[in-house]
Structure formats: structure tokens, C-alpha cells
């Protein structure tokens, strides 16, 4: 069992989500920065489907009732392990947490979301095939709070841990490459250039549903709403306010505001690590 002594500002259980149910109104959900969760699982020898913990702004404290191998990835936090035995802990390496120890996360140096994978995976009951908390629909386990107890799955059949270290990344450039469309024709000529001209500021009301931006308003060529249509993760939707929203994991499966472009899959982790107040720019150029 892992006991949540303090969840920090917002923490949830996440895996790769529940794709395949969008036509029934179910968001995909799953880790907002999927690449970081995948890396953490790989570091402890888990299957890619294993569930981990997604912290927002760090500052969590977890008590381990049984010893476990863990790995921490994503937004880099100062890590300490309080235990009878001295334990080295760090980002991007598997380390052993002895029974009775407490893992403490500080505030991240950059980025927003930090992932903890535990060998065996977090074994809460899946809902529609996933252990992810969906903040939009409420499916899956409730967000973690003080006193939440998380069972850890069996690790007996897992392969040996074979990775020593994933070198720590630097903060990625705050540039998101987008593929224009599907509704770029709902905007005035030059609107895409407008979108890409200057950095946007990330707004305070961003969450797992979307990154809300403040900045230039791409001019519309057509008013009104579209008939509701399917939405993809990474869609840059422009509501009537003109301030774009980048859809993250918990986005609604359908929507009626036009999508001017879609963030490339490789850049979604960058979007998921943006903090309120950060500045971010769009580009339609496919290369860096």
C-alpha cells in the first residue's frame, strides 16, 4: 500500500486512459504527459499500461507500507526519502523505497506534472479498462487526498529492471508545432499567421481538460457554432472569446467551436507541462 500523506495541489492515478469510447461520450483521459508516464514505467520494468501517480506542482508526501521500486519522471522535483536506512533518490532513476519510508516531493524547478511509477503498478479497480481519474466526467478513482490508500500490483512476473538512468531533460523550448485544420477555413486569411506570430501566456484556469491561453485572437471568417463534431487531443479550439484552448487528456470527446490546428503528438508533453504564467508559441513548421 501507498498512503497519501499529502497529495500536493492536485494528484491523481493515471495510466494510458480509456480510448475507444469517445462515441459514447467518454473522454480518453490518461496521463497528460504520456511520454513521462511511459518512461517511469519503463524504468521500473512495468508494462506500458501500468498506472502511476500524476502530481501537479509536486509538494506531495507518500508513505510506503511495503518496500517498492519506484521511478519519478516529468517535471523535476527535489526528492527526499525519509527512512531508517539511507536511500538515494532522484529523477529518472529506479530507486528502492524501503517499507515504512516516506517519499517527499518538493516544488518542481520547471514544468507542472511529475509522475511516479511503482514496480507492479497502482492497482486500484479499473473503470472501462482504465485506472485513470477523468477530471471531466468523474470516471475512475477520485483525485487523491490525505489518507488515500493505493494498492500496489504484483511484480513477481515482471522482467528485471534493466535501465540505470534516463538522463534528465532540459526544459523543452516552449514551441508547439501544429498541423493546420480541421476548421482553419472558419478563420480569416492570415489567422494562422496571427496564431503563430507572438507567444501566448498560459492562463490560471488551465487544467487536465485544456491549456487556456491569453494573447492574440485569431480573426474568424465565419460566426456562430459548428454542428458538434469529434475532437482530438491537442486540438487548438477557439471559442467565441477568441482565446485559444489546447485540449489535453480529459477534453470532451465532441465540441462545437472551430479547431484552427492540432498540436503534433510529439509536442503534447510540452503542452502538458506548461504552467500558468508560462509563455508558449505556435508554429506550423514541422521541424524544429
Amino acid at each position: 500500500m501507498i498512503e497519501i500523506l499529502a497529495p500536493g495541489p492536485y494528484a491523481t492515478v493515471q495510466d494510458l486512459g480509456r480510448p475507444g469510447y469517445a462515441h459514447l461520450g467518454v473522454p480518453c483521459s490518461g496521463a497528460a504527459d504520456e511520454a513521462s508516464l511511459r518512461l517511469a514505467n519503463r524504468l521500473v520494468g512495468n508494462a506500458k499500461e501500468a498506472a502511476g501517480i500524476e502530481l501537479t506542482y509536486g509538494r506531495a508526501r507518500l508513505a510506503f507500507h511495503a518496500g517498492a521500486w519506484v521511478a519519478v519522471t516529468g517535471a523535476p522535483c527535489p526528492l527526499t526519502v525519509r527512512s531508517a536506512l539511507p536511500v538515494g533518490a532522484g529523477m529518472g532513476v529506479p530507486f528502492w523505497v524501503p517499507a515504512g519510508a516516506e517519499v517527499r516531493f518538493g516544488a518542481p524547478a520547471w514544468g507542472l506534472r511529475t509522475y511516479l511509477a511503482v514496480r507492479g503498478g497502482i492497482a486500484v479497480e479499473p473503470v472501462l479498462g482504465s485506472r485513470s481519474t477523468d477530471s471531466l466526467s468523474g470516471l475512475g478513482p477520485a483525485p487523491l487526498r490525505q489518507g488515500s490508500m493505493l494498492p500496489v500490483g504484483d511484480s513477481g512476473s515482471l522482467v528485471e529492471i534493466s535501465v540505470d538512468l534516463a538522463p534528465a531533460g532540459k526544459p523543452p523550448p516552449a514551441v508547439l508545432r501544429i498541423v493546420p485544420g480541421p476548421r482553419d477555413d472558419w478563420f480569416a486569411p492570415g489567422a494562422l499567421a496571427e496564431l503563430c506570430a507572438e507567444p501566448y501566456e498560459v492562463s490560471q484556469d488551465s487544467n487536465r481538460v485544456g491549456v487556456r491561453l491569453r494573447g492574440r485572437e485569431p480573426a474568424r471568417a465565419r460566426e456562430g457554432e459548428l454542428p458538434s463534431e469529434g475532437m482530438v487531443t491537442g486540438a487548438v479550439q477557439v471559442p467565441p472569446s477568441g482565446q485559444p484552448i489546447i485540449f489535453l487528456a480529459d477534453h470532451p470527446p465532441t465540441g462545437g467551436y472551430p479547431v484552427i490546428g492540432v498540436v503534433r503528438a510529439a509536442d503534447l508533453p510540452i503542452a502538458a507541462q506548461l504552467r500558468p504564467g508560462d509563455r508558449v508559441r505556435f508554429t506550423v513548421r514541422p521541424g524544429r
Binding site: 480510448p19 475507444g20 469517445a22 462515441h23 480518453c28
Partner: peptide, 14 residues
């Protein structure tokens, strides 16, 4: 194909 999402005038295929 993992998602097929019909709407009033569209079908999204992911």
C-alpha cells in the same frame, strides 16, 4: 483505428 466518433455532419476517425 481506435476511435470512430459520429456527429451531426461528420465522422471523426482517429
Amino acid at each position: 483505428v481506435v476511435e470512430i466518433v459520429p456527429g451531426p455532419e461528420t465522422v471523426l476517425v482517429v
